[in-house]
């Protein structure tokens, strides 16, 4: 059991924990947070995949992928929060979606 496998398993655990609220939570904000946790789990697995042994330089490709993924996740979260704010301002309940 290597350090990188530990991180990959941690990522998988975060991912697994976030599935339930992502699909079934009624509150919109919880679902948005769950989506971010799901993404973080995937990113952690990707970072762990870049491990190429003690002292060796990690694989830059996975880091590039994670950076791109984070940009996408931040944009999507921003858009989701903006929509939630507009709905809230319009007086809609956030549980009805």
């Amino acid at each position: 059991m290597t350090v990188s496998l530990g991180y990959a398993l941690l990522g998988a655990a975060i991912l697994a924990l976030s599935i339930y609220p992502l699909v079934l939570a009624r509150d919109l904000l919880r679902r948005i947070v769950a989506a971010n946790a799901f993404g973080t789990g995937i990113f952690l697995i990707l970072v762990a995949l870049g491990f190429r042994g003690e002292g060796a330089t990690p694989d830059p490709t996975t880091h590039g992928l994670v950076l791109t993924g984070i940009i996408v996740a931040v944009s999507a979260t921003g858009l989701a929060l903006a929509l939630v704010a507009r709905m809230h301002a319009a007086g809609a309940r956030l549980e009805d979606v």
Binding site: A76, A80, V84, V97
Partner: peptide, 11 residues
């Protein structure tokens, strides 16, 4: 707005 949020979450 409602439809857009559903669309976004599915996406």
């Amino acid at each position: 707005f409602k439809a857009a949020i559903r669309y976004l979450l599915v996406g």
